[in-house]
């Protein structure tokens, strides 16, 4: 399953679908980092609104994406985690520590705009 990656100015936006397999997630991880390098993006928004289950693998992949992108000097924001999914995640002990989160795409963009306006 292809994950669409949109370029929006200095940001990249990746939108996850509901039924991503491990292979899809791995592919996405590589794809995103390559695009960040290619477009010299300052930040990536990963939109997980459509995901109805976030298990340990998906959660770990998101953290790894965020860490790899940070190594490229850019930032990651995870947006759109559903309330029920968030509840299940914390039960599993998956808290995405150290990764920025926002309610939805709009909030994620607002957060990044604010951040980059302040730092520069």
């Amino acid at each position: 399953m292809e994950v669409p990656i949109l370029k929006q100015g200095a940001f990249l936006i990746a939108t996850f679908q509901a039924a991503l397999s491990d292979a899809d997630l791995n592919q996405l991880r590589m794809g995103l980092v390559q695009q960040v390098v290619k477009f010299r993006s300052r930040a990536v928004i990963v939109d997980v609104t459509a995901m109805d289950v976030m298990d340990s693998f998906a959660s770990r992949t998101l953290r790894e994406i965020a860490h790899m992108i940070r190594l490229r000097g850019a930032e990651t924001v995870i947006v759109g985690i559903q309330p029920e999914v968030a509840f299940a995640m914390v039960q599993l002990g998956l808290t995405l520590e150290g990764v920025a989160t926002a309610l939805d795409l709009e909030e994620g963009l607002a957060y990044l705009n604010e951040r980059f306006r302040i730092t520069k």
Binding site: D52, V53, D55, S56, Q82, E84, V85, F87, A88, L92
Partner: peptide
């Protein structure tokens, strides 16, 4: 649907 999410997540972990 909250419980269904917990159940689906547990199944995902077990299958994994």
């Amino acid at each position: 649907s909250g419980d269904a999410t917990l159940i689906a997540t547990a199944i995902s972990e077990l299958a994994r």
